[in-house]
Write a protein that binds this DNA or RNA. Structure first.
Lengths: 136, 136
DNA sequence: TTGCTCCTCACGTCACGTGAGGTGGC
DNA sequence: TTGCTCCTCACGTCACGTGAGGTGGC
């Protein structure tokens, strides 16, 4: 049996995160009837490790909850897990592309502004700002 | 003068977003005293376009607010803008790296599970799940 | 009356982080 | 009393999206 801080340290997370998982039902610790403290079993610890591994693979807490729900029903969550993973891989690919495009836009702006450090062109230093002022 | 819907359409965003910008003070439309409707000037339209361009460059609304504040004080926001942009470029680079690593982890798991579609290894199909069950 | 636009709350998103205020045992 | 751990709210994050419920003029 572990306290919230013990199980948190063992798993490399904060006690607050453990409480968070408990509040949303991913963990179901018992309570010490004397003081209301949460008490975690080795089984809880396994669940917590599973949550952490799933998070590292990009699964959301909602997906973890669904996996637990299926497992509790005695169903193999594998089909769901695979579908989730496939969807996340595709979504993450799109997100990476989106950020790369953003990166290019930002670097383009950075270069444009770098060129204008020449004091001779002092009135076009902040093109972003000016494009705003011009349109106002 | 424009209504919230007119200026929104012209700028390619939703009326709700325009109201949102107004509520947080990025836009300061007048009010029609008869019905309380917001009325936007060409100057507001310029501000809105600026906001949108800044968003495309990755600036947060808080940063836009700071840029407006500096401009309203008659100060050149350029130093702030450059510093923000540099910081965002660096942060975005790190974020892209983070997502690439996540992508690799996910694809590794996907491959590992694909291999195990062989029915002969039916009891190791869901390694993620099993690593959980084993540790429980 | 119907249809359209406008308005103001107010909650939801995602996974927690950060206090605030209080308890219990050494 | 001090220090430590535990507890429960409850708000903040980021940029809106999505209703809910109501108004005003054609």
């Amino acid at each position: 049996m572990y306290t919230v801080t013990q199980i948190a340290k063992d798993s490399g997370i904060t006690p607050h995160t453990v409480r968070h998982y408990s509040r949303i039902g991913l963990l179901r610790p018992n309570r010490n009837p004397e003081n209301g403290y949460r008490t975690f079993s080795p089984n809880d610890k396994g669940r917590l490790q599973f949550i952490r591994r799933a998070r590292l693979l990009g699964f959301s807490l909602d997906e973890v909850a669904e996996i637990f729900r299926l497992a509790d029903l005695g169903k193999m969550p594998c089909v769901f897990v695979r579908a989730s993973l496939d969807a996340r891989i595709a979504a993450n690919r799109r997100e990476i592309e989106r950020l790369k495009k953003l990166q290019k836009r930002m670097e383009r702006a950075q270069r444009a502004w770098a060129v204008d450090t020449d004091p001779a062109s002092g009135d076009t230093i902040c093109q972003l700002i000016e494009s705003f002022e011009n349109s106002a």
